[in-house]
């Protein structure tokens, strides 16, 4: 009888994930399977026949495709900047607004505007800001007496990637901001009041209460930031097209160009799988670290 009860309970628990699982089985499994299948074939996306090539796509990407690794490096650089600067900015803004600062309501609305904005507008605006001959940034630098460092920011090997990363971060901090704001709401206010009674100052409260309780949210935001580097494709196309040379190529631009530009679907799928593995590893490391911190 007990076993039956237990079975019933577990079955009931499964019911909760059943709708999600059903959707997953119907709509995700087949495309997933297809991507894995294509990755061992040579296929141009049109012909009814494909040629089995085994793991040679993977071998080629891993050992004989330096531009792929350069693009991974570029993606990692942008993601690293986003993880640090973008998320710090998001956290500081969330803290300030959460403190019930005057005008907090207005700021709350404003900070989410960049993600809402159309990519077309973002591209147009930032191309104008960074332009070498009549750009806003160069104009401002000249006014500040820094005419020496004026340049076409998106066109020089040294500055192109960072310039793109800045647009990406500017566009992305709003996401982190609202998740962290929601996260701060879950911290019981009594904890702060108790700490105040104990004579803790703001800085101590931040370190002892806010940050430890926010760790799961930080992990969530970090993983979403890592995934965010998949969304950078449209931005690259609108600003640099991956150039100059390969300086602003990221994995997704490589995948799309080998799929649509060179019509090598199999190769592109293999790239996609490798890229997925990299993202998965990065996310797992995040989760591990947070678990260790939690245990301490």
């Amino acid at each position: 009888m007990v076993a039956k009860e237990r079975f019933k309970a577990i079955f009931g628990n499964y019911l909760f994930i059943l709708p999600a699982l059903g959707m997953f089985l119907i709509f995700s499994v087949y495309p997933f399977f297809k991507v894995f299948q294509l990755s061992v074939f040579q296929w141009d996306g049109i012909m009814p026949t494909m040629k089995f090539v085994g793991l040679s796509h993977f071998k080629d990407i891993l050992f004989r495709n330096p531009t792929w690794w350069q693009s991974v490096g570029n993606g990692a650089y942008i993601t690293f900047l986003a993880l640090t600067f973008q998320n710090c900015l998001a956290f500081v803004l969330a803290l300030l607004v959460d403190r019930g600062i005057k005008g907090g309501k207005i700021y709350r609305v404003i900070f989410y505007l960049p993600p809402i904005l159309s990519g077309i507008v973002v591209g147009l605006i930032w191309n104008w800001i960074y332009n070498g001959d009549y750009g806003l940034l160069n104009y401002a630098l000249k006014a500040l007496g820094l005419a020496g460092i004026q340049r076409a920011w998106l066109a020089e090997p040294k500055t192109a990637l960072t310039s793109v990363a800045i647009i990406h971060m500017w566009r992305g901090f709003g996401w982190g901001f609202i998740i962290m704001l929601a996260g701060l709401q879950n911290i019981p206010r009594e904890l702060y009041e108790a700490a105040k009674v104990d004579g803790a100052n703001k800085w101590q409260m931040l370190r002892r209460i806010t940050v430890p309780l926010m760790i799961p949210v930080f992990v969530l935001v970090s993983i979403l930031t890592i995934l965010g580097c998949m969304q950078i494709y449209a931005l690259i196309v609108a600003t640099t097209g991956g150039g100059p040379g390969y300086h602003t190529e990221v994995p997704v631009t490589r995948i799309i160009s080998s799929m649509l530009g060179q019509s090598q679907f199999g190769y592109a799928c293999a790239m996609g799988i490798l890229f997925g593995l990299i993202l998965l590893t990065a996310s797992m490391i995040q989760l591990r670290i947070s678990r260790r911190i939690k245990q301490e």
Partner: peptide
């Protein structure tokens, strides 16, 4: 499913 960009999908 979040991680793998699905080019052929």
């Amino acid at each position: 499913t979040l991680m793998i960009p699905l080019p052929g999908a």
